[in-house]
């Protein structure tokens, strides 16, 4: 509805204006906190205040040269990538299985698989702590990776499942009739076609792990501090604009990931639609 010439009557015009105003307000509500932080990261002063005393990149420099920040970034990457990989395998297999399973118990199983999303984070964290502590998984990378995998897998099941729903099962039947084993058919036919779904699943999984803080608070030792955990203590202990620099870097990474995903999706539409 960008063509204003189609708006003839006054009431239509009022409705259109109202839509614009409300949408803008919602947009500001969503984006303002992020935008407010960004200029602060370029401040030359040591306090999080406006107006900025001057512009500098010193906090970015601080972020990059600080061993503590770099260590936490490395931790976040390790745990994020590992739990993404693990949840992709588990989630994709679960989605594939659920997609071709016809049973009245399916909703029940699906609810069970998705439960980590619904259960409050603190409860999951406490539960995991008491489960992991006796077997020595607290204060370890493996423990955190497993915990984040449990949180991220439902998102993979949802996104991959949604992609499979629009997948034409006749294509896998056609592949089978042409002699392709289930594994060959998956590799050559199913996988390339559900790749955008897998990519967005991976993105969600990575994002889930990357900004998770509650479980990390309970389970991580000093060695496994992640970026959000470092920011958390940064705010409580010694508030410095380095946090804002970290925030801007995180946001930029997310935007790049989202843009990549959109590009992938469009490429796939083109393949299917044949434009």
């Amino acid at each position: 509805m960008s063509d204003n010439s189609s708006l003839r009557t006054p009431s239509q015009r009022i409705a259109w204006t109202a839509t614009i105003v409300v949408s803008t307000l919602v947009f500001i509500f969503l984006i303002a906190p992020i935008l407010a932080i960004m200029p602060l990261s370029f401040s030359s002063g040591s306090y999080l205040t406006y107006p900025l005393p001057g512009l500098s990149l010193r906090w970015y420099d601080d972020f990059i040269t600080s061993p503590r920040w770099m260590h936490s970034l490395k931790n976040s990457m390790i745990i994020g990538v590992a739990s993404t990989a693990l949840s992709m395998v588990l989630g994709t297999l679960a989605a594939l299985g659920l997609a071709q399973w016809k049973s009245r118990f399916k909703p029940l199983v699906l609810a069970f698989v998705l439960s980590p999303v619904v259960v409050p984070g603190v409860i999951t964290a406490v539960g995991l702590y008491f489960f992991f502590a006796p077997i020595g998984l607290t204060g370890s990378y493996l423990g955190l990776i497993l915990a984040h995998t449990a949180l991220a897998t439902p998102f993979v099941v949802i996104t991959v499942g949604a992609t499979l729903q629009s997948f034409d099962t006749n294509l896998s039947r056609a592949a089978a009739s042409l002699g392709a084993s289930p594994i060959y058919a998956f590799r050559r036919v199913i996988l390339p076609l559900i790749l955008p779904g897998l990519a967005s699943g991976a993105l969600f999984a990575f994002a889930t792990s990357f900004d998770e803080v509650v479980i990390v608070l309970f389970m991580a030792g000093p060695e496994q501090r992640t970026l959000p955990r470092e920011m958390f203590s940064g705010i409580r202990e010694n508030i410095s604009p380095t946090i804002t620099a970290a925030a801007v870097i995180l946001t930029t990474v997310s935007v790049i990931l989202l843009a990549t995903l959109e590009g992938l999706r469009r490429r796939n539409e083109r393949l299917k639609g044949g434009g």
Partner: peptide, 8 residues
């Protein structure tokens, strides 16, 4: 019936 050609 719906051809089931591989679109990619």
């Amino acid at each position: 019936q719906n051809y089931a050609l591989f679109p990619h």
